[in-house]
């Protein structure tokens, strides 16, 4: 009998090999301890959360949600700000041009430019910017010598520093010659 079993085992081994041919999922044995500890810990945690809802709360939920969805759809009609902005641009340009033309037209229509209505600062600025083109002869043409008295300059309060700066920065050497 034993001999027969031994023979059969030898036969099976020769046919099937010594392996069982079963396999386990990858990493199964790596986290088996964790899974064991988790299921042990879970036994100490209550399996119900204790929350409840008002009676028949879920019964009317579809209707209340749908009515809210519909009312939101009616009240909130989203208009793209970008689109609205693009629509406004041509109108804004046209309005700006019209405004510019009308301001220029109405303000310049009845106003004749003369020396009296020029601002003092405008005259000064023009003089400073164009002074390189104005010769002393030009000035002499406009200023009447009879109106000027030498005493007009006698008491003029000019700082010594200003005079010094003028002499230093003015390239007109004749001034120095005059001092000498």
């Amino acid at each position: 009998m034993e001999e027969k079993i031994k023979n059969s085992e030898l036969y099976l081994n020769s046919v099937l090999g010594e392996k069982s041919n079963f396999s386990a999922p990858k990493d199964y044995f790596n986290n088996i301890e964790n899974r064991f500890f988790i299921s042990l810990a879970e036994q100490n945690i209550p399996n119900k959360d204790g929350f409840s809802t008002p009676n028949s709360y879920f019964d009317s939920l579809e209707n209340s949600i749908l009515s809210k969805v519909k009312s939101k759809e009616k009240t909130i009609k989203v208009i793209s700000l970008k689109q609205r902005f693009y629509k406004i641009i041509p109108a804004a340009i046209a309005a700006s041009i019209a405004l510019f033309i009308s301001i220029n037209y109405f303000t310049n229509k009845n106003t004749e430019i003369n020396f009296d209505n020029l601002a003092q600062t405008d005259i000064e600025n023009w003089f400073l910017e164009s002074s390189s083109n104005i010769t002393s002869e030009d000035i002499a043409t406009f200023i009447n010598v009879d109106d000027i008295n030498v005493n007009d300059f006698a008491y003029t309060n000019i700082d010594d520093d200003d005079i010094e700066d003028y002499i230093i920065y003015n390239e007109n050497t004749t001034l120095l010659n005059e001092i000498n």
Binding site: D49, F51, S52
Partner: peptide, 17 residues
């Protein structure tokens, strides 16, 4: 939750939360 009408949990469920 101790004063919540819609929480019927016991002491242990409160501790769980």
């Amino acid at each position: 939750l101790t004063t919540d009408n819609f929480f019927n949990g016991d002491e242990i469920q409160l501790i769980l939360q």
